[in-house]
């Protein structure tokens, strides 16, 4: 198993932490992982992305130009990465703020209303965890227990009381993700 993922969106949406949480969780499940951020002159409100690779084998290149999965959280990211999904691959997008639907017909496409769900949970900070939940529902490459262990590693101890909330957000994402285009 090798899953090559690009996660892209606005700075401040938690794009980089999503990749880190997936990688930490992968480590907890004895996977090989690599995480590479775009570290250009980005700032809050600008675009940010990271490449996360989770694999059973040693990872050669940490930098890629095509991906098994693209998780795009704003329109510029969809414009940039929709074409970079491998045929037969997976595109997950956040509906809020998108001005158009994906155009590809040779990939699996899922949508999620993670922002809306985070508002309903009274905590927009868990937005990215809802998206992770959606992703793990479609690609169950990491078990929930290991995601929680990953969170314990990523979060400083003073935030450990927030882990149940994050777990709830992940489960919420698993519930609300919807299919838009599925290959046979």
């Amino acid at each position: 198993m090798t899953e090559e993922i690009i996660i892209a969106g606005f700075g401040g949406q938690g794009v980089l932490s999503m990749g880190q949480i997936l990688c930490y969780s992968g480590v907890m499940q004895n996977k090989e992982v690599s995480w590479m951020p775009s570290y250009g002159p980005e700032m809050r409100g600008g675009t940010a992305n990271c490449t996360a690779i989770i694999s059973d084998e040693a990872i050669s290149s940490p930098v890629l130009n095509t991906y098994d999965t693209a998780i795009v959280l704003n329109q510029p990211s969809m414009d940039k990465f929709e074409d970079a999904v491998k045929p037969g691959g997976l595109l997950i997008y956040e509906r809020n703020g998108m001005t158009r639907k994906p155009r590809r017909t040779d990939i699996n496409i899922y949508a999620i209303d993670a922002y809306e769900a985070s508002v309903k949970m009274n905590n927009t900070k868990v937005f990215n965890m809802i998206v992770i939940g959606g992703f793990l529902k479609i690609r169950p490459i990491i078990e929930m227990d290991n995601v929680v262990k990953g969170l314990q590693k990523v979060l400083p101890e003073r935030y450990h009381h927030l882990i149940p909330l994050n777990e709830e957000a992940i489960r919420k994402g698993m519930e609300i993700i919807t299919v838009e285009h599925k290959l046979n």
């Binding site: 990688c23 995480w35 590479m36 990872i59 940490p62 930098v63």
Partner: peptide, 10 residues
């Protein structure tokens, strides 16, 4: 370099 410095691995 910028890749090795910025990337995260086990």
């Amino acid at each position: 370099d910028g890749i090795i410095g910025q990337m995260m691995e086990k």
